[in-house]
Computed example of a mutant assay.
Amino acid sequence: MKVGDRIPEFTLYDQDGETFSSHSLIGKKNFVLFFYPQDGLPICIREACAFRDAYHDFVKNNFEVFGVSSDSETVHKKFKRTYKLPYRLLVDENAKVRELLEVPPMLLGLLPGRVTFVVDKEGIIRKIFNSALSASSHVREAISTIK
């Protein structure tokens, strides 16, 4: 995937077992998908909380935020509650969407990658940011893109 491509259609469940479809947002809402390795890892907690702390800026600019990892609904639900995350966490247990969007692994393939996609309401990818170790830079890059 590259900037300017249309986001492919995919469907995942969120932390509550509710269906999320990328297609349901096309023509209606801009969105940010941030892929991260795993709930509970310190850098992933920092990233999730950074998106939480900036959530108002996203909403104010008509963007919705979604976190994506391979953790289960149960693990996501606990993570969301523990850190008071205002956005949905999507379950990609088999890494099918990660593969579809060509999110590369990190740390010599030991962990799933950390990549953020900013998508406009027409479904066009406007920014792809890949940085394995800098959680807060994902939020900064996404905010600078939406403004």
Score class of each variant (00 low, 15 high):
M1C: 07
M1F: 13
K2M: 07
K2P: 02
V3A: 03
D5F: 11
R6A: 14
I7K: 01
P8Y: 03
E9K: 13
F10I: 14
F10H: 05
L12Y: 03
L12D: 05
L12I: 07
Y13P: 00
Y13H: 07
Y13G: 04
D14I: 07
D16F: 10
D16K: 15
E18W: 00
T19W: 01
F20T: 12
S21Y: 01
S21C: 09
S22R: 02
S22F: 00
H23L: 15
H23E: 15
S24G: 01
L25R: 03
L25W: 09
I26C: 03
K29G: 00
K29S: 12
N30H: 14
N30T: 02
V32T: 12
V32N: 02
F34R: 08
F35Q: 09
Y36N: 09
P37Y: 10
P37Q: 07
Q38L: 15
G40F: 05
L41H: 08
C44E: 07
R46W: 01
E47V: 01
A48R: 10
A48D: 07
C49T: 15
A50M: 10
F51Q: 06
R52F: 09
D53P: 01
A54L: 08
Y55A: 10
Y55M: 13
H56I: 11
F58V: 13
V59K: 15
N61A: 07
N61S: 08
N62C: 12
V65G: 06
G67Y: 06
G67L: 09
V68P: 02
S69W: 09
S72H: 04
E73P: 01
T74A: 12
H76R: 02
H76T: 03
H76M: 02
K78L: 11
F79W: 12
T82N: 06
T82Q: 13
T82F: 01
Y83G: 04
K84Y: 02
K84G: 01
L85D: 06
P86S: 06
P86N: 08
R88H: 14
L90P: 11
V91H: 10
V91Y: 06
D92F: 07
N94W: 02
L101M: 15
E102W: 00
E102A: 08
E102G: 00
E102R: 05
M106F: 00
M106D: 07
M106A: 05
M106N: 09
L107T: 03
L107S: 09
L108R: 11
G109H: 03
L111F: 14
P112G: 13
P112C: 06
P112M: 12
P112I: 11
G113R: 04
G113M: 05
G113W: 06
R114Q: 04
T116M: 08
F117K: 04
F117G: 00
F117P: 03
F117W: 04
F117Y: 15
V119P: 08
K121W: 05
E122A: 14
I125D: 10
K127A: 04
K127P: 00
I128D: 07
F129L: 06
F129R: 05
N130G: 06
A132Q: 12
L133M: 13
S134H: 10
S134F: 04
S136W: 00
S137Y: 02
V139D: 03
R140S: 13
E141G: 06
A142H: 07
I143A: 03
S144T: 09
I146H: 05
I146G: 06
